[in-house]
């Protein structure tokens, strides 16, 4: 981690309270450009709330954060323009064709017709979906849908892409392919902020943070975390930390 690397996400004591309940409790971290940042935690640990604050959907109760250099309190519009998002629920329109989905999402990000045309051709070729471009998305296998959803999420060339459990319910082969796509995106300079339930996927991340009860209890490379907790896998690291949790699901 070079000192001169650009920080695309910074969070400092970022907090979100709902009444008496503190969903996110003063978390602090930084994410560098092109990094694959794993954001782990049990259900109810506060991951989703944190992502919502970072993507401009929810205003923090306290603390500071910037995303792509923009302030999460005042510059949510600019933040939204600089990020891509793919949620755990499937996020394309089933009753639109592959091409229509691409065109719609590119359209709402204000991409030009020429840009959409050129990049759609490239994308369809990459995903080997040229034959299926005019088929409804609901007719595609789940793995293809997920890969297409990811491609659509980064179609407008965002600085950061938030992936909220992107590989839920997908078979291991497709997960491998999906992670290949994530690596390619990271290499092209897109920062990837990913939450996952699969601990083997945590091993693929450059750095991993683990949230417990609204706080970040651990943050380091997978290798260092395993050393620190003296275990052989990220799964064991996670179990050691999650055992301390007091919040119910």
């Amino acid at each position: 981690m070079g000192i001169d690397k650009e920080k695309v996400i910074t969070a400092n004591q970022l907090t979100k309270r709902f009444g008496d309940f503190t969903a996110v409790d003063a978390i602090s971290f930084e994410v560098e450009k092109g990094e694959i940042f794993g954001f782990l935690g049990a259900n109810g640990a506060g991951k989703t709330t944190a992502i919502r604050m970072l993507s401009g959907l929810s205003i923090p109760s306290d603390g500071e954060a910037t995303v792509a250099g923009f302030d999460v309190y005042r510059q949510t519009e600019q933040i939204k323009r600089s990020i891509g998002y793919m949620s755990q629920k499937f996020s394309l329109y089933e009753d639109l064709t592959v091409r229509e989905n691409i065109r719609f999402f590119a359209g709402i990000y204000g991409m030009s017709d020429q840009f959409i045309k050129d990049n759609t051709a490239r994308l369809l070729h990459q995903l080997r979906l040229k034959e299926e471009e005019n088929k409804l998305v609901k007719s595609l296998p789940l793995g293809w849908k997920q890969k297409l959803a990811f491609s659509v999420a980064i179609f407008h060339e965002p600085e950061i892409v938030f992936l909220d459990e992107p590989t839920g319910g997908v078979d291991p082969v497709t997960r491998r392919e999906f992670w290949t796509m994530i690596y390619e995106a990271a290499e092209s300079g897109i920062t990837v902020f990913v939450t996952t339930h699969y601990m083997d996927e945590a091993e693929y991340c450059n750095r991993v943070s683990i949230m417990v009860d609204g706080r970040i209890d651990a943050l380091d490379t997978p290798k260092n975390l395993k050393q620190q907790y003296e275990v052989g896998s990220m799964e064991d690291v996670f179990i050691k930390l999650a055992r301390k949790a007091t919040r119910a699901d």
Binding site: S55, G56, L57, E77, K80, R81, I83, Y85, M86, S87, Q88, K89, F90, S91, L92, Y93, E94, F105, I108, Y109, G110, A153, F162
Partner: peptide, 12 residues
């Protein structure tokens, strides 16, 4: 279907 989340995250 979850697409509302995606729309809300967009600049629209």
């Amino acid at each position: 279907t979850g697409t509302m989340e995606v729309l809300l995250v967009s600049p629209v």
